[in-house]
């Protein structure tokens, strides 16, 4: 029985030490052995004289609801991995504080926000096999016979990203475009993993993901059969951000960590484990840096996303429910 309880409570006992503890909340795939978490923890702890602890209650949306449940009493000092579509709601919660003295970032759009610090970004895109007819635009995709799997905007951030992409590219015509695209949509999954699984199993011709996704297949699998075609309408930008909790009891350590997150070392780790573009210009493997990039970046500011979201999702739902 003692063995059993030791086993059950093991994770809790591992970190009972005297060094200051920095608690970072992030999404679950960030902290697995294939994500950036373990590597970042090692290098940050080597210099900070602290204990960096991750909490990972699910995906990005789950993090925010968890923080809202915890309220101001939360032990979390920094949060890593909210995205631009969740920023409006995050700001409204009033849980985060402004940052000072952070390094400059290079993004395809101008970034002026002083509460949310970008640490990586990517363009949403459709990933498909090279040997299929490659569409050059959303309109071409809608007119093709390709069968696509997408994610539900009500449960998944890429799904919401596509809805915003359509809105940014087609404005008032977005609903009509969704109707054109409807017969190409094989099905809708609750999250990214299920959709990507359906694609790699060969059930769908293309999947909504990121234009940088092929980098994983090239670098980690040595497989260059996957491409993400560039669309003439432009691609919607997703920026992943980190922020500091207003109620943090380690504000200086939190600042140090956020600065560290933008260091060359951390940025390289993030790019090749998260398969997203780094937020600062750093050297990337050729297969990654050489991926085709969209000529046009589409982006809606977070507060506008917040205003448009419900109507845009209704539009999506109406078009796809026919």
């Amino acid at each position: 029985m003692r063995l059993l309880s030791a086993f059950l409570f093991l994770p809790a006992m591992a970190a009972a030490q005297d060094r200051p503890v920095l608690t970072a909340m992030t999404y679950d795939s960030f902290v697995t052995e294939w994500g950036p978490g373990p590597e970042l923890e090692r290098s940050f702890e080597a210099t900070c004289g602290c204990d960096l602890r991750f909490v990972a209650p699910g995906d990005a949306a789950a993090m925010l609801s968890r923080l809202r449940l915890e309220g101001p009493r939360s032990e979390v000092d920094v949060i890593i991995g909210l995205d631009t579509n969740l920023m409006g709601a995050a700001r409204e919660s009033g849980l985060f504080t402004t940052l000072e003295g952070m390094p400059a970032t290079d993004l395809p759009v101008e970034w002026t926000d002083s509460t949310f610090l970008p640490f990586d970004w990517g363009w949403f895109g459709f990933v498909m096999n090279r040997n299929m007819p490659i569409p050059a635009s959303m309109a071409e995709l809608a007119d093709s016979d390709l069968r696509v799997v997408i994610q539900d905007p009500r449960s998944s951030t890429p799904g919401l990203g596509l809805v915003m992409w359509m809105k940014a590219a087609y404005g008032d015509q977005a609903g009509a475009m969704w109707e054109r695209l409807a017969d190409n949509i094989l099905t809708v999954t609750p999250g990214w993993s299920e959709a990507y699984g359906l694609f790699t199993e060969g059930e769908a011709d293309a999947v909504l993901s990121y234009t940088s996704s092929p980098a994983y297949h090239i670098l980690a699998e040595g497989n260059s059969s996957k491409v993400a075609p560039i669309f003439t309408e432009g691609h919607y930008l997703q920026v992943e951000v980190a922020a500091k909790l207003a109620g943090s009891d380690q504000p200086d350590l939190a600042d140090d960590f956020l600065r560290f997150l933008l260091s060359d070392e951390a940025q390289k780790v993030i790019a090749t484990t998260n398969w997203m573009y780094p937020a600062r210009e750093v050297d990337l493997p050729e297969a990654f840096a050489g991926l085709p990039r969209p000529e046009k970046t589409l982006f809606l500011p977070p507060d506008q996303v917040e205003d448009l979201r419900d109507a845009a999702i209704d539009e999506w739902q109406a078009a796809l429910s026919r």
Binding site: D28, T32, W34, S193, G197
Partner: peptide
């Protein structure tokens, strides 16, 4: 949970 994490890290075969 680990199966889900493997899928989330593109590792469909291991998942």
């Amino acid at each position: 949970l680990l199966v889900q994490q493997l899928m989330g890290a593109y590792r469909m075969e291991q998942a």
